[in-house]
Write a protein that binds this DNA or RNA. Structure first.
Length: 326
DNA sequence: GGTAGACCTGGACGC
DNA sequence: GCGTCCAGGTCTACC
């Protein structure tokens, strides 16, 4: 790529392979992780149009872990100064560079199981809007359909970069898209109007990201607000909470019940399991989601190998609750 | 406050 | 190849 090249100095323990491959969204379009080269690539929607960024850490030819080494960004076009700042801001959100080494030490003090691996950061999207829409695509559907919806949303509604790759659609674009297009061409089904309504709320400013991320805003108020959004119920709200950096709640879905039965050895009705699950994670206080998630992720890695080696095509098919029932 | 049924897609299964 | 059933979380109507 012959465009702008930038460098970001991450926190000392940041590990690109570990910290990108830490949450399922890293395999959803427009994200692309290449296990062989340990390179992350996606299109960012910037002020002057879409730009593809390729991210490596340290010496790409080395197989050694290079925690804390500079992140090298290579773009497919030239970015002016404001765009460079915008790109860095979006990538910092995506990679959770705001989670400092001290933040992670605090998490590991509560749950020391992840101290050795250093796990703590959870990959997310460059924008809250993309995180919310991705969460809606993960509701009431098997994982392969979530993968497909995100691919189609980008291909049908996203802008094309010089690289030929597509961006995730902006809120503005999605707010003007017809429900029939989303349903017919993006396979989002009944989620069509809910996605458009969400996009319109973002465009109008009805969703106040500053308030949602303000440390002074109580978790309970954020959770209750999220549940008022179209297509967002208790599971989705819990998931968006963690995407906002609020780890005090679980996002309970069928996968949680599968985990409770097969890994934790619990039995009973869903209501009984929910009580046992909450009791199990209670000791982790305001970090329950991370403790839950890395237990789950550990299980996936025990079945599929280290997450940074997962091929996109295989991952698209492998990760469904049904695959792990036994 | 709790719950049954509808919503939509895609995969599994039986014929 | 076709039809049927089922899984998946949210929403609405109803009790």
């Amino acid at each position: 790529m012959a465009g702008t090249r930038l460098t970001i100095t991450p926190p000392k323990d940041f590990d690109l392979a570990r910290d990108v491959c830490s949450y399922g969204y890293f395999v959803l379009a427009p994200n692309h992780w290449d296990p062989a080269s340990r390179t992350f690539m996606r299109v960012l929607e910037l002020a002057a149009g879409p730009a593809t960024v390729r991210i490596t850490q340290g010496d790409a030819s080395s197989r050694r872990r290079q925690r804390g080494a500079p992140l090298k960004l290579a773009f497919d076009r030239t970015l002016d100064r404001p765009e460079q700042a915008e790109a860095k801001r979006l990538l910092a959100r995506m990679l959770r560079l705001d989670e400092t080494d001290a933040d992670l030490r605090a998490f590991h003090a509560i749950d020391p199981r992840w101290k050795k691996s250093g796990r703590g950061r959870l990959f997310r999207s460059p924008t809250l809007f993309e995180d919310v829409i991705k969460t809606v695509t993960s509701c009431n559907v098997a994982w392969p359909s979530t993968v497909k919806m995100n691919e189609r949303l980008c291909a049908v509604c996203g802008r094309k970069a010089e690289s030929g790759l597509y961006a995730f659609p902006s809120a503005k674009k999605l707010s003007r898209t017809r429900a029939g297009t989303l349903r017919g061409r993006c396979s989002v089904g009944y989620r069509d109007q809910r996605m458009i309504d969400l996009a319109r709320m973002f465009v109008r400013g009805d969703i106040d990201e500053a308030w949602l991320t303000d440390a002074k805003t109580p978790d309970d108020e954020v959770f209750e607000f999220l549940k008022t959004l179209p297509g967002i119920g208790p599971y989705a709200a819990g998931n968006i909470m963690q995407l906002l950096g609020r780890y005090s709640r679980l996002a309970i879905d069928t996968e949680t019940f599968r985990h409770a039965k097969t890994v934790l050895g619990y039995a009973g009705t869903d209501a009984q399991l929910t009580k046992k699950i909450k009791a199990h994670y209670e000791p982790f206080g305001d970090q329950v989601f991370r403790s839950y998630w890395f237990e789950l992720w550990d299980f996936y890695e025990s079945k599929q190998g280290p997450s940074h080696t997962w091929e996109r095509e295989r991952t698209a098919k492998a990760f469904t609750a049904a695959q792990f029932k036994d």
